[in-house]
Design a protein around this nucleic acid. Sequence first.
DNA 1: GCCACCGGTGGC
DNA 2: GCCACCGGTGGC
Length: 397
Amino acid sequence: MIEHGLSAVLELDCTRAVQQFRPHFGLISMNVDPCMLVNSLSEDKSPKPYPAEIRDLDISRIQMQSRPIKLTFKLKLKKDENGCNGSTLPDHPDKSCQQPIDEVSPQEEENHSAAEDKVNQSGEDDAQKQLVVYDPAANGTTTGEEVQPLSFPKKSIPFHSSKVLPSVGAFTVQCAECFKWRLIPTKEKYEEIREHLLEQPFVCETAREWRPEISCEDQPDICQDGSRLWAIDKPNIAQPPPGWQRLLRIRGEGSTRFADVYYVAPSGKRLRSMVEIQKYLLEHPEYVEAGVSISQFSFQIPRPLQENYVRKRPAPARITPSDANPLSWAGPDENTDLRLGLPGFCDAPDSEIVDLPAKKKVRRGPSKHVFSCDSVYDQQGLELEEPYQARNDVFEI
DNA sequence: GCCACCGGTGGC
DNA sequence: GCCACCGGTGGC
């Protein structure tokens, strides 16, 4: 079992792996907590195929579609001070899951993985909680060691985290031809694909770079089934300059905006706007001399598919006699809209709501389903008409 | 004291 | 409504 307070949070539900949604580009993310774990595969560590943040592990819940998978990965703890120092993987028939713990570099920390997780506190049938990620070993990409890491998921022991924020857990892109989701092994590869997505649409064959046998005939790696929160990224965002990191920080539900982008300079300086970038480059001409340009930066953020994830900005106040009465604003806001589910793929467990960061008491508009089938299908339709126009990246959180 | 995160605001 | 910017602040 997991020891030393590893947080349990994420859980998958991809059994209903049906192609139900068709954005074209995206990330999969999972909730994150102060304790970050990073899995790496092979011993050579170059490059790390599937680093991932995970808050909780329960390998026994992992299923690779219909075939068993063998997991081998290392856990790396980010913050000892969070009670996460030291851990072991859960007991699992496959002892290859047992690996030493290393340190995590900032870069690794940002290399979220192609794995997946999500908390599920709804108590759904275990059979519904499985990870749907492709099995590299099954595709003949494994060399030497038989294993390929994949992902993991699931919950177990809550740990003391005062605040839990979602974060990107994996990267996925949708094939422009078959519309199946393909996981992207690294953040860097994802950024590379994203940079030229409009001119070079992603197709399953593109993934042969790391999955030689993949084709549109293969099952999707992941599904948009409402069990996780998805966000749609923007295409054609330049890759960060060499040595720079582009960080995406997902805000908690109910915040005034969905996420923040930061750039981390090679010096470690964190910059949060084009103004700051410009100023920094002026103060450090060596970067400009090395070829760094302001055009290589973008603070565009993805858009959450979950309705009402971001708090709407209140309409300009109109003072009327009733509004002037403070009591008219005093009632509790139940946010019942966040607890509604729909049959079928939209019957997302309440857990996805429950698992999100503590909601703020925010005034919301008329109740709507957070994972409305209608809204999703509407978007899918738009995607079909304009495959690579507006939204192409998707994050799952 | 630092900084990650959040809120507010102005502009479009 | 979205975006860009940046100030405030709680937690460490």
